[in-house]
Computed example of a mutant assay.
Amino acid sequence: MAALKYAGLDDTDSEDELPPGWEERSTKDGWVYYANHLDEKTQWEHPKTGKRKRIAGDLPYGWEQETDENGQTYFVDHLNKRTTYLDPRLAFTVEDQPAKTNTRQKYDGNTTAMDILQGCDLTGKVVVVTGANTGIGKIKGRQFITKCLT
């Protein structure tokens, strides 16, 4: 927020805007993490959106990455003759899209009820499906399975 005021811009309602006391940082290998200075903790997920980000691409033209005597990484802007501990690529991050697991399973005549219900919590529920081999029973049985697995 201070950076916005410094740049002459007003506060925004952007969902990517960090809450007060938070800072966006990056690791040497390009992963973005968030530092909460109020609780003195860090986390990988954005505090508002819950999304993970990573830095895409190389440093902009004229920039160089260096390490100081304490082992901290800093960045040198040779064009404007400035240094900063803030990675300039943070403005160009991309969302980390974890690979979606395929939750659809195919069942055949050898599939047991326990195979289908694996991972379903049926605590406090009663389900009775009769005649699930054909017709309405089969449809209702499949609807139950679909609801249970989603």
Rank of each mutant, 00 (worst) to 15 (best):
L117S: 08
Y107G: 02
C120Y: 12
V126G: 08
E66F: 06
G57P: 07
E95S: 00
L90D: 01
K81C: 06
Y85H: 09
Q105L: 11
A35R: 14
D29Y: 12
K53P: 00
L122C: 07
A91H: 01
N110K: 14
H37F: 12
W31G: 00
P60Y: 03
G57H: 04
T93M: 07
C120E: 08
T73K: 10
G30I: 11
Q118A: 10
G119P: 14
G30D: 08
A113V: 15
G50R: 09
F92L: 05
G30F: 08
R104H: 13
F75R: 06
G71N: 07
Y107Q: 05
Q97V: 14
T101D: 05
T42C: 05
D58P: 09
N36C: 10
Y74P: 09
H37G: 04
H37W: 13
V76K: 02
N110I: 03
K81M: 04
V94D: 02
E40A: 09
Y34T: 07
D58R: 14
K41R: 14
D87M: 02
T112P: 01
Y107L: 15
D115S: 05
Q43G: 13
A99F: 09
R82Q: 14
T103C: 09
D115P: 13
D87F: 02
Q72D: 12
I55Y: 01
K81S: 13
K81H: 09
F75V: 07
T130E: 09
I55L: 15
E66Q: 14
H46R: 04
W63H: 00
Q105Y: 04
T67L: 04
P98F: 12
R89E: 03
V32Q: 02
D77T: 06
V76R: 03
T73W: 11
G62K: 02
Y85R: 05
T73N: 11
K100I: 11
Y85D: 03
T103E: 12
D68K: 13
E69S: 10
W44L: 05
D115K: 03
Y33Q: 01
H78V: 05
T84W: 06
T111Q: 05
